[in-house]
């Protein structure tokens, strides 16, 4: 399928499915996703996981780049505060995310395009729930249009 056709389907098909990028930390959320898998929990297949060492390692640029290059939504998840494998990576990250989330919303990017959460290694059920929730929210927004790069 050519990119053009794909583009058309994306915007016209009623059964459009969003593409969601999830940036997750290795120690908690990725393990949580694993647990969800082992427990055979069902959740929508719209999410592409990208594993990083720590939520503190998530350059906010990754989030913006994902939106620029075709993600309809971005989920960011790390360990709960106080449970970071590297002690405080997620606490530094939380400030970056707060600035970024507020800023993106301020310039007019829909609030639900970028979603932040904490999921621990034992929260397989929460992982499934969050994916469900995020997918529903992004679906409700429709395909991303702002910030999306089109080749000139």
């Amino acid at each position: 399928m050519s990119a053009e056709v794909a583009e058309k389907q994306k915007t016209t098909a009623t059964d459009w499915e969003p593409k969601i990028v999830a940036l997750v930390c290795n120690w908690c959320t990725y393990a949580g996703a694993d647990l969800a898998g082992i427990s055979r929990l069902q959740y929508p297949p719209n999410v592409r996981l990208i594993r990083l060492p720590c939520s503190g390692r998530i350059n906010p640029f990754y989030i913006v780049k994902a939106l620029q290059h075709g993600a309809d939504g971005v989920l960011v998840s790390g360990c709960h505060p106080g449970e970071c494998h590297y002690i405080s990576g997620n606490l530094s990250a939380r400030r970056k995310f707060a600035f970024l989330e507020n800023f993106l919303n301020y310039i007019g990017i829909e609030k639900d395009r970028t979603i932040f959460t904490w999921i621990s290694a034992s929260e397989g059920d929460k992982f499934a729930r969050v994916i469900e929730e995020v997918t529903a929210r992004v679906k409700a927004l429709g395909p991303a249009e702002k910030l999306v790069k089109k080749l000139s």
Partner: peptide
């Protein structure tokens, strides 16, 4: 060169 998906341009 720039690439979006499989479409590319030389700029």
């Amino acid at each position: 060169d720039e690439l979006e998906g499989d479409q590319g341009i030389r700029l």
